[in-house]
């Protein structure tokens, strides 16, 4: 029997105490479903989705602001794909386009430079949404804007830091036994930060990659630690994640952005969990500070409980009845990395 098969057998046959593991990152949730991993592990091991879907945690007021810009004469919103579909309190960008607004989906933020220089009379607003993973790209974009002396391109930012959110969950939510830490964000932050969390909260923090095999090995490590009473940080994705992270990228982020308190959709304010443009670069900001407010989720929507790992999507009264990918009530149903959407599409 190969090592992978042994891991599969162990996880499938686990009969110890019930274990609750949070996969922080939406890409992990997507891969867990894509690989059918939930069907392979013991029902005593529950996998719950965390706050690591950028679209899901971006406040509705931010999306509203984007829509306002898209509909404003002489303006054009530039964005990555996922943000096109999410609704704020009114329209989504896709719907705003149908109302005569202008929103263009880009694959690379640097394409924004080309668009802005080609249309000097249009004010472009780039929707800079994401976690540490995407932040260096936005820093590079600012650098290019400055270098090319672009006057008609600004950023509306909602950039989040994942570690404070994980810490928030450790402080406020009981019952989570271990964390499968995000592979992509850890490339930037490094895995060292999780060592401190593991010591402080006495839980396993295991950094894992995104292939099915990576995830299974990370889960196996978590279960082994819990069974032997250990709580350690373990980096199971060493090919790309280092102890200190990508210091070059971190320096770049730090040059243009500073840490600030930030609002998470459905959760509220988390201290020092956001990145905003530093004062000298405030001229490149399209009013981000006024775009993120505390707010309520639509009535009955339990996205916040899903993001915090209190319930699984199927426990929400709106799931599959009122809230579907055709008519999403909450953000977790919209995004490709939102737990509700992934559950809806892939649960047997």
């Amino acid at each position: 029997m190969g090592p992978l098969q042994r891991v599969i057998n162990e996880l499938g046959g686990y009969s110890g105490e019930p274990i609750k593991i949070m996969e922080v990152c939406g890409t992990h949730t997507a891969s867990i479903f894509k690989n059918g991993i939930r069907s392979m592990i013991s029902p005593k091991i529950s996998l719950i989705s965390g706050p690591g879907c950028p679209v899901c945690v971006t406040p509705a007021s931010y999306t509203d602001r984007l829509v306002e810009y898209a509909l404003k004469e002489g303006h054009c919103v530039l964005t990555f794909g996922d943000m096109m579909k999410v609704t704020g309190s009114g329209l989504s960008l896709t719907e705003a386009k149908a109302h005569g607004g202008r929103a263009v989906m880009l694959y690379s933020p640097l394409a924004a430079i080309k668009m802005a220089s080609g249309e000097p009379d249009t004010q472009f607003v780039f929707a800079a949404v994401g976690f540490e993973t995407t932040a260096p790209v936005y820093a590079l974009l600012i650098e290019e804007i400055i270098k090319n002396d672009i006057k008609n391109l600004k950023l509306l930012t909602s950039i989040k830091k994942i570690i404070p959110a994980v810490e928030y969950i450790c402080e406020n939510e009981a019952g989570i036994d271990a964390f499968l830490c995000p592979g992509h964000a850890s490339v930037i932050t490094g895995c060292g930060v999780y060592r401190q969390l593991a010591d402080k909260y006495r839980k396993p923090f295991v950094v894992g990659g995104f292939d099915g095999e990576h995830i299974l090995s990370a889960l196996y490590e978590i279960v082994s630690q819990l069974q032997s009473g250990r709580f350690e940080m373990k980096n199971m994705y060493p090919s790309v994640v280092s102890e200190d992270g990508n210091t070059k990228a971190a320096l770049l982020i730090n040059k243009y952005f500073e840490t600030s308190d930030d609002y998470w959709r459905g959760i509220g304010k988390i201290k020092a969990s956001g990145l905003r443009l530093r004062q000298p670069y405030a001229g490149y900001d399209a009013g981000s500070a006024f775009s993120c407010n505390e707010e309520r989720l639509p009535q009955g929507c339990r996205c916040a409980d899903v993001i915090l790992g209190r319930i699984s999507p199927a426990d929400c009264g709106l799931f599959k009845t009122v809230c579907t990918p055709f008519a999403a009530v909450g953000p977790c149903m919209v995004s490709a990395e939102g737990a509700c959407g992934i559950w809806y599409k892939n649960s047997i």
């Binding site: 599969i8 059918g36 599409k345």
Partner: peptide
């Protein structure tokens, strides 16, 4: 679908 790892999932 039976996945490459041997798991099962719905394909919507």
């Amino acid at each position: 679908m039976t996945t490459a790892l041997g798991g099962r999932r719905a394909v919507d």
